[in-house]
C-alpha cells in the first residue's frame, strides 16, 4: 500500500522538506544580520498565520547567531485587503501584535509565500498606521512569481517557478504538524 507523507496525494510534489526549510531560514537569518550590520533597530513582524511562525523561527535563528532577540510580533493585513466585499466570505481576523513602537525601526516583514504582492501591500499599509519605520524589508520562504504589484522580496528562502494555476502550500509544524513546501497541480 502506498502512503504519502502529510497526506500528499500523487498530484502534489514536495519542493522543500523540513530540513530544507530550516537551512533556508538559517541562510535568510544570516543575510538579514549581514545586510543590517547586526540586529540593532530590527523588529520582526510576521503576517499571520504562517508568516508569524516563520518570524518566530527567524527570531530564534538570529538569537542563535547574534545572542540578541529582536522584538517579534504579528501584523495582520486582513482589514487592509483590497478584495474585501469581492470574496464570498469575509476572511477571519488574525492577531495584530506590534510589540514596540515601530518609529525609526527597520521592519523585517515575514510571509510564507510571495505571489501577487497584494498581501504585502496590505501589510505595509497596516504598518504605516502604526508609525513611520526607517525601512521595511520583506522576507519570504517561497517566491513563486506572478507579481501584480511592483514588490520584490529582500530575502527569499527558495524561488519556485510555478504556473498561475498551480498551488503552493507551506505547511509548518506549528500549524500543520509537519514542515514542508508542496506544489499542487491545477485541478479543474
Amino acid at each position: 500500500m502506498l502512503r504519502f507523507r502529510g497526506g500528499v496525494s500523487p498530484m502534489k510534489k514536495i519542493m522543500m522538506d523540513d530540513k530544507a526549510i530550516e537551512r533556508a531560514l538559517a541562510r535568510v537569518a544570516h543575510e538579514i544580520i549581514e545586510r543590517n550590520k547586526g540586529t540593532e533597530q530590527l523588529v520582526i513582524l510576521g503576517i499571520p498565520t504562517r508568516g508569524y511562525h516563520l518570524a518566530v523561527r527567524l527570531q530564534k535563528k538570529i538569537e542563535e547567531i547574534e545572542g540578541v532577540k529582536p522584538p517579534t510580533g504579528a501584523v495582520d493585513a486582513t482589514l487592509y485587503r483590497d478584495d474585501l466585499g469581492i470574496k464570498k466570505d469575509q476572511p477571519p481576523l488574525k492577531k495584530m501584535d506590534i510589540p514596540i513602537s515601530i518609529d525609526g525601526k527597520t521592519i523585517i516583514m515575514v510571509d510564507d509565500v510571495l505571489f501577487t504582492g497584494r498581501t504585502t501591500r496590505a501589510a505595509m499599509n497596516a504598518l504605516m498606521d502604526f508609525g513611520r519605520p526607517l525601512s521595511i524589508q520583506l522576507a519570504v520562504l517561497v517566491d513563486r512569481g506572478h507579481r501584480e504589484l511592483p514588490i520584490k522580496a529582500d530575502y527569499v528562502g527558495k524561488n519556485i517557478p510555478t504556473s498561475r494555476k498551480e498551488g503552493v502550500k507551506v505547511h509548518l509544524e506549528e500549524t500543520d504538524g509537519v514542515s514542508e513546501v508542496v506544489t499542487e497541480a491545477a485541478v479543474d
Partner: peptide, 13 residues
C-alpha cells in the same frame, strides 16, 4: 485593538 491605536482607522470599508 484598532481603537487603542494612535491612528484609529482601518481602510476596510
Amino acid at each position: 485593538e484598532v481603537s487603542e491605536r494612535e491612528i484609529k482607522k482601518v481602510p476596510t470599508l
